[in-house]
Structure formats: C-alpha cells, structure tokens
Nucleic acid binder design. Sequence first.
DNA 1: TCGGGGTCGATACAGTGTATCGCTATGAGA
DNA 2: TCTCATAGCGATACACTGTATCGACCCCGA
Lengths: 230, 230
Amino acid sequence: MTVWDRPEPPPPPVPLDRERIVAAAVALADEGGLTAVSLRKVAARLNAGPMRLYGHLSTKDELFDLMVDAVQAEILPDTQPGDWRETLRVVAHRTRRTVLRHEWLADLLGGRPTLGPNGLAVTETQLAALDGLADTDTVLRAVETVGAYVIGALRREVANLRAERATGLSKRDWQRAHGPHVTRMLATGRFPALARAVHDGTEVDAETSFTTGLDWVLDAVATRLPRPPA
Amino acid sequence: MTVWDRPEPPPPPVPLDRERIVAAAVALADEGGLTAVSLRKVAARLNAGPMRLYGHLSTKDELFDLMVDAVQAEILPDTQPGDWRETLRVVAHRTRRTVLRHEWLADLLGGRPTLGPNGLAVTETQLAALDGLADTDTVLRAVETVGAYVIGALRREVANLRAERATGLSKRDWQRAHGPHVTRMLATGRFPALARAVHDGTEVDAETSFTTGLDWVLDAVATRLPRPPA
DNA sequence: TCGGGGTCGATACAGTGTATCGCTATGAGA
DNA sequence: TCTCATAGCGATACACTGTATCGACCCCGA
C-alpha cells in the first residue's frame, strides 16, 4: 500500500457529550423526520461508532426524551407576559411555533411525561401565572386542560399538514385530495351532516383555528377562577 | 428421512382478507403494544408468510390506519343520546374506554387524519348532534376543539399510566416514583409553583380529571351556540 | 519493564419493512 | 387430453434497525 491508495484518515472523533448528541439528533429529525433518527446516523454525524452513544444514553427512548426537552427551551417566553391569560396564550402559541419548526415534536408530545428541566420550566411558568387565582386543584386542572387541547390541536394540525403535503398541495379539497375514497364515502349518503359541513365550511387557516379553540378553552378556565386578578 | 422425523405438516393456510389481518394485528397490539405488531408476527398468526399481507395492504402504515378504524367502531354509541351535549360527552367517554381497552390507540390517535368508515361515522355523529345549533363553521370548530382536548387528555392519561406501571405501582408520589431526579429538580427551588402544586394537590383519579376538563370545554362550546335547543 | 484493570467500541445478533423474481398453478388453445 | 403461456404468489434476499457481548487497547501502579 502506498501513500496514494492509503484511505483518507478518519476525521478526529469529536468528544461526545449529551448536548452534542442531542443537537445532532434534533438536526437529523428536522431534516428527515423522526424515522431519520437512528443511533447509527446520529453517531455518524459525530464521527463515532454507534456504541459510543451508550456511554451517554441508556436507550433510544431516552434520546427522544432529551430531544423533546431540548426544543422545549424554545417554548419558554423570554419575558414574563402580563396576566394569566396572556401567559397561557403565549406559551400555547410558542408551543405551536416550536412544533411547526420541529414537526417531529408532534409525534412525541404527550407520549411521555415531560420531566426534563425545560419541560418542568414550562409547567412552572403556567402554574405561576395562575398562582393564587384559585385553589391548587383548580389551577392544576386548568393547566392540564389547556395543555391537552394544545397537544391535540397541534397533532391534528401536523397530521393535516403532512396529508396535504403527501397528496400534493391540496388545500381544502378534502375530497379530491384524499382520493376518490372519501368522495365515494360521502356520496353514499351515510354521512349527511359531514357532507354538508365539507360543502358549506369556510376554508380557515390553521392558526386562526388554533387560536379560536384556544380562546374557547381559556374562557372556560376564566369561568373557574373565583378570584379574578385586580 | 422416515415418517417419524418428518416435520409436522404446516396448518392449512387461512384464506386472508383485510378483516382477518386487522383482527390479528389488533390482538397482537392489545397483548404487547404497538411495537409487538410486525408484519411477520401478524402473518405468522395467520399461518402465512410475511409477503402474503401485501396482497391486502400496501404498507405497514396502512395496517395501522385500518387498526385505528377497526377499534373506532367501539366508539360509536349504540343509541342516539339526547341533546348535543350528551352526545359529545358520550362519544368522549366511549373514546376513553376504547383507548383504555387498546392502549396503543393513544399512540396513533391524532397522528393521521381518520378517514375510514368508522372514523367518519364518529365525526358524523358529532356533527349531527350540533346540526342547526350554529353556523357550519362554528359547529366544525366545536367538534375540532372537543376532539383536540380528548386526544390530548387521553394521551397524557396513558402516558402517566405507563410511567406508573414502569416505575412500579407509584401513584401520586411523582417525586419518589420518577427517581430522585425530579425530587432534586424540585429541591433546587427553581420551580416554586410546581413544588407547591405537587405538595398541595389532591390525588384525583384519571376519570374525574378527564370528565372535569371535558365539562369545561363543553361549557365553552355551549357559550358559542346561539340557538340553544328548545 | 512488566502486569493488571478498566473502559471503549468493533463485531455480532436477532429482528424489522419491503423489493425482487423464480416457481407454480391455472387457463386457453390445439 | 396434452402443451404451452401467463399471471400471481410468496420464499428469499437486502439494507437497516437497536443493543449485548466481549476482545483489544491503553493507562497506571509496581
């Protein structure tokens, strides 16, 4: 073997730490979705063999947890907003922006308890905003309810986004979009209310839809706060 | 080779159809979760090779869609309940029971648009219940909002259920349950409202929590219906 | 300089979804 | 009834997954 056919020396291995691993995983997921995240590919990005990761993680699910917590940092508001309602609204909208930036987050949100530092910080922000406005149990219920709505709404939004993308830029044409299947279904007459809704419904953009539902839920919360802020 | 060591003849292959395939997949998922569903195992249950399934499915995701639609049949109420509120409540509770019977459903719900016959039937039921009580857009918004809450709440409920199961029957001891990690976090003093909430909060069972939040959301919907039923 | 201990990561394994394509079994034509 | 073409089925193969194992290497103490 001469110098000429000696293979390129491998790049010097990067010293690993959780932060770097998670950053690489997030980058991969942003580019190709959750399924593009494999321990081999993450390790390859760091010029390492797969097993090196196991010094810092014990399982792939743990990596997912760390990824979720990492991007949850983007949810925390930079400045404390005004009243409780504004706080919950801002957190919800920042959650939405984060999910749209990292679509894979929709697949993970709500799938496991979020106990990382950033996840706890988000919860802390919400609880602090409602602190003193009602008894602890009501406050907890409020945060849970709003959180449930946000997760469900964002999952649906991303699901629709992907479906539209997959069937080729189809916006409101539900029917044509998802192939003749749905059209045929609606034509059977077994779903009259649904058919009418599809026919009469206005096309509303996802953000408005999200905001409207959120306001409804926030109204519901407001009703349960016995001590409105002065 | 003699007759004695001739291997057992394979059982006669079952004639396949979608229904049988989906039933086998659902059974596997009920027993071992979504990860226990592999095309090979599903096929094995039907005494078939893996590729036989591809005559009836084109991809594994399609199988998941069919599984979701299959169990959604359990959500449809047997008898039409009274007013719109009762209808939405019943559908929500039946959804919850279905998710608890098939925990894997929590992983799939909201992940893709539900366009199967049963999924459409569920939507139809909800829309029909609200038909005429408000303009189409408001009705759609109402169904979406309630649906988002239900999906989010059930995902969290199942996530907590699994976490409790994994850390060994730990109920409300969040802190001890998830190891010293959360305890340490709370002890840092960075999450005062959260610490207080964990300390003061009453233990409420999941069903009550679900029902309470649901009632809040239904109240919010009621506010937007201009024409209350006579 | 030698020996021992501890860690790191290459190799190996059991399993995945699915593309490919040789075989078989059927049906038509003579 | 015999022959041949064809169409579809499913065994085999492939690329890839997460992770257990364990041999090799390196560093430190003697």
